Simulated assay, not measured.
Amino acid sequence: MALSTQTITTGFLLPSIHSAPPFFTQQPNPSTQSIATEQWVRLILTYARHRKLFVLRVEDTETGGSDWGEILRNERINRKVLPSHLSSILEAMVAKNVAAYDPPKQTRSVLLYWRLPEEWADVLHEWATSTGQLNTILTFYDITDPPIESPLSNIPVPLLRKAIAILVKSGRAQSIGVADGEGVRFFTPSR
């Protein structure tokens, strides 16, 4: 079978490497494995952004019908990523700062940074500005589950906290304790 790209049901275009059987197994040559890992990292982050997925678990390799099944498996060539291989890919992603183990102190689940926390901070502040939320106290729920879908809809709280911490450091926000938990107030950036 020749290597070819494929558009899957979600409209995502899989790269041609996805139709190569060796892509799904760990390679004995460290140089070859390094290149394959880079391609996996790129594929995972691009797919996550396309689908707005924030979490990837080692178990997703075994779960049929998971959000990740389309890229962790290729039925046409009867291949799937084994849990140990995905584990090493996740480890590489964490080392590159494009993912973080979540919850911390385990290595089977990561929070994906298809946008870095600094980029989320900019998106968050831009959203607060464009929706007239400056100098208003908002709960995390107000941000992650707004009445009108936004780029921040369903953003995981750990990632939201990191973005807010960046805004607090730069003087564009203030963390506030509210009755329901955590909140934030956004400010106009000082010039």
Rank of each mutant, 00 (worst) to 15 (best):
Q106L: 03
T188P: 03
D145T: 07
G64Q: 12
A173K: 01
G69T: 13
V168F: 01
T37K: 02
N29Y: 01
M93W: 01
P158E: 06
V81L: 13
I89M: 05
R42N: 14
T32Q: 11
L167C: 13
P146E: 04
V184S: 08
V168N: 07
D145M: 07
P104G: 00
N154T: 11
A92S: 15
E59V: 06
S109G: 04
E75N: 10
A100N: 09
H85N: 13
A2Y: 00
S109D: 01
A128F: 00
V157R: 08
G64A: 13
L3R: 09
S170C: 10
S109L: 09
E70V: 01
L134P: 05
N74C: 11
F23H: 10
A179E: 15
I164H: 03
H85R: 10
R57A: 10
W127N: 12
S84R: 10
Y113G: 14
I44A: 08
V168E: 15
S130Q: 13
R161M: 13
P156R: 06
R108L: 13
W127V: 09
N97D: 15
I44V: 15
G11N: 07
P156V: 02
K96S: 14
W120M: 14
S175N: 11
N74K: 05
T63V: 15
T32C: 04
I44T: 08
G181Q: 07
D145A: 10
S87M: 09
S88C: 08
